[in-house]
Each structure stands twice: as structure tokens, then as C-alpha cells.
Amino acid sequence: MSRSVGVAVLGAGRMGADHVRRIDRVTPGARVVAVADPDAERARSATAGIDDVVVHTDPLGALDAPGVDAVLVASPDEAHEEAVLAAFARGLPVLCEKPLATGAEAALRVVAAEERLGRRLLRLGFMRRSDSEYLRLREVLRSGRLGRPLMVHCVHRNVSSPPGFTSQMLVSSSVAHEIDAARWLLGEEVVAVTALRPRPSGFAPAGLADPQFVLFETEGGVLVDVEVFVNSGFGYQVRCEAVCERGAVRIGAEPGPVVESAAGAVREVPQDFLPRFADAYDREVRSWVADVRAGRTTGASAWDGYTAALVAEAGVRAGRTGSRVTLTPPERPALYAPRE
């Protein structure tokens, strides 16, 4: 493709608006041509200052707008499946924020639809695969110089949970990132999950089991533990340490910038995911646009989204029952091999 890629962005909330800005300002070879959101005023606000962009309240209207070559889905989770299938029906490449769909059964429908096409059109937005620290961690592990990985320790903390956030969502929404990261870093599937719930924080909303401790076992015998705490009250932190036979490698432990004033020196902690992963999102969208221009699809796939949903559902069952839940990894379709 010699001209700029015309992108329709579905969803103009915080994530969608940030992607509109990203495509317009920091992504060479792409332009926003349509934005859809049920709140037309919010969509107009997200596109302020951008020429030749149309606003729709109906996602399908945005997909059919003139000049649309590709679709970025940043709408609420429950709208992802319909939007992706509509893009497939039009032969449009898609970058979809995670999750792929609301559960493994729905995600499998997306996989089946893409298999019928006979080619990959979807890249799933597991942005940690585009983060410079995670990329370096994977490089170290894949080099073999530290020996085989034995354990991976993960921390995932948020300042506070949004309204309506449930105990199950600590795993299905938050820990979903660690599920994909572990599979990607280790090149192994998860075969068992245990989820433990300590006494809840006094700052967690009533009825929310927060924090939680989730333990994954991989087919090769690696243990991956995740502390997820979505009402930490102080900042957004994502950390990962891989312990190998001959050493360990850690990311995310570096403190934030130091602010000096008459009151003293204070280290700042990011308050949400956007500043922490801003560079990863930029890198991800630029890579996706380059793929669209080249007529290919790379990155996390619909199959990765389906597998993450399967593991997350097992984690939710483990947390509910207090028992270890085993999984049999499904056979990977030829369309999604080899794994990236």
C-alpha cells in the first residue's frame, strides 16, 4: 500500500481517544478517517483538530465509511466480538484491544471465523509484547545464557478498581496480561492454575476479593506466580522476574522519576497503565500499521486470545473453589503456527 492507511477507531473512551491521538500524531503512514462511539460528542472531542474524519454512533457505519483500510477496536469488552466479525466480513485488518471476546466460547467463534477466511487479519492488543523491557526479558530468556527458566514472579498493581469490577475480573481482565506474557516469554502452555485469596484489603470495595495470588504451572514445569492487587491505593506497578538455572532477570523494578523541591526529593509512581506502557502502545500501533501496509499480520493472534481466555476461566474456577484446576492445551490450528 503506497498511501496512508485509513483507520476506523471504534470506541472514543480513554483508550480509544488515546489511539486516535497516537495514529494522528505519532504513527507514520496512517490517518484516522472514522471514529465510532455511542456518545457522538465524545467522538467529536477525540477527533478535534483532525481533518477529514467522520464520526458515527454506529460501529458498522464507521467500518463502511469511505477510505477505511483497517480497524482499531477500543470499545467495551462486550462489543469486541461483533466488531471483529464485522471487520472480517469486510476483509479489513484489525487491531483489537484485549480481551478478544467475553470468554473462551466467544473467542473460539472469532478463531473459527478467521480460519474460514484462510488468513490472519487480527492482531490482539497484548501490548506487553511490544514493551522494550519485556522484549529484552524475552531476548535474555531465549538466548539460553542463564539456563532454563524455573520460576517467574509477577506483580500487577493498580491504584483503584473501576466501578463494577468483580473478583473474577482480577483474573479474567488484569491477570490476562500475565497469562499471555508467560506463554510468550516461555514458549510453553499453561496446564494448571491455583488461585489463592488472602483476606481482602480494607480499601477494596465491599465484596471484592482483592488482592489475589495466582499460580500457573506450564507444560515444561515452570511455575509462574502473580500477585494482583487492584486497589493498592498508591500507584500502578507491573514487575516481572524470571529465575533461571544460572541467574535471574528482572524488569519493572526501576523507580519513577525523582521530583526535587523545597519539601525534599520524592520518587513518583505512575498512577495508571497509560504512562507506564505509552511507548509499548506506540510501538504496537506502528508495527500494526507497517503490517497492514505490507499485507501481513503478526503479533498476538486470535488463538492467543482464545488460549488466554481458557486459562483465565480456569483461574476464576480455581479462585472460586480453592482447588487446583488442570487444563489440556487445545491443538493449535495450522493458521496460527508457528507461534510468535
Rank of each mutant, 00 (worst) to 15 (best):
K98P: 06
A74Q: 10
G118Q: 05
T102P: 13
L60V: 12
L63Q: 02
D24E: 14
A104G: 04
G91L: 02
L117T: 05
V71S: 01
H80M: 06
F126W: 06
I50C: 03
F126P: 08
P66C: 08
I50Q: 08
P28G: 05
A112E: 13
A62E: 08
A46S: 12
L124S: 02
F88A: 00
A34Y: 03
G103K: 10
E78H: 13
E114A: 01
G91Q: 00
K98Y: 03
A43M: 06
R21W: 09
D64T: 09
D18K: 15
V110L: 10
A83K: 13
A101H: 08
L100G: 03
E81Y: 05
E114W: 00
R25P: 09
R25H: 14
D77N: 12
V54G: 14
V53E: 11
M15K: 13
A89T: 05
A87K: 00
L100R: 04
A87G: 04
T47Y: 14
T47M: 14
G103F: 15
R129G: 15
G125P: 00
V32D: 06
T57M: 06
S45T: 11
M127R: 11
G118E: 03
A101G: 08
H56C: 06
R42V: 01
L92N: 01
D77L: 14
D69E: 08
G13A: 08
E41K: 11
V71I: 11
